[in-house]
Amino acid sequence: MQRYILHRALTLFFSLAVASLALFLLLRALPGDPTNALISVGMDPAQVEVIQASLHVNDSLLIQYFSWIRDALTFDFGESFVGYFPVGDEIISRLNVTLPLTFIAFFFAALVGSLFGFVAAYKRNTFIGTFFSGISQLGSAVPAFWVGIILIQSFAIKRPLFPSGGFPVEGWATPGEAIRSFTLPVLTIVIVMSASISRYVRTISLEILDSEYVRTARSLGQPRLKAILVHGSRNALSTLMPIFAIELATTFIGAVVIESVFALPGLGSLLIKGIAQHDYPVIQSVLILTTTAVLIIGFIADVLTHMADPRLLKARR
């Protein structure tokens, strides 16, 4: 097991290196020189050189890459080309919105999704089972931003129970206001994500219900529900873990869309604005941070999966 974790950590490190290099090169391969954004008409060549030196564009790509990584490790992401704000500070303030949104929404989505999926499988061929799998089918077919639009229509405009968008300026210092502006976005994500999670849970639960070890346990006199929960949960875990990791990452990245619908000042809206304004320090920093987060989520999920299912360790040899 330790060997596996060490191996997987090395893989994580290697992945991070390759991903960051690929990201760096892709953004460098863009048509046009990033300095163009900072050079205005009528600057003399000396001024242009100062700007170019400040951006290190004349260094070799490799040196640029390593100095970028070195700065990023100390959380120095440079300055925005457009707003001249330090990107690192801006990211931290944006994470105050995006991280709670992601985790609260994912927690409820996983809870609701697992419950619905299990009931849909456990009660299959009955009205309840069909009803639950029908709901989750409908839910996973609905575009998230459309749910958001409809929720705004129904609960912010027709009946003004919640704000239609935005986030209090004081942030979490005014928890009541913050929670009120979070309600509809969280609800939107939960509706969409729980539906997709419950479909996976249903499939896996069906597999377990039909498995031979559950039949054996039943034949030894265990009640059906107990046989499934005791023997099935661990098997389910090893299959569900990678899926949950992907779903968590999807929620995190999907927050971009929800932030746009509800005009929340999160990481996603920062990135979208950055892309629209060709603000490379912002694009590059947000992308490398999200990539790192997703890679680490995958690492943790893989380790947990192998803890739950030692057969996978055996299969490696």
Partner: peptide, 10 residues
Amino acid sequence: DIVIAFPTLL
């Protein structure tokens, strides 16, 4: 892992 780390949107 690297490819999956980039959800479609990313």
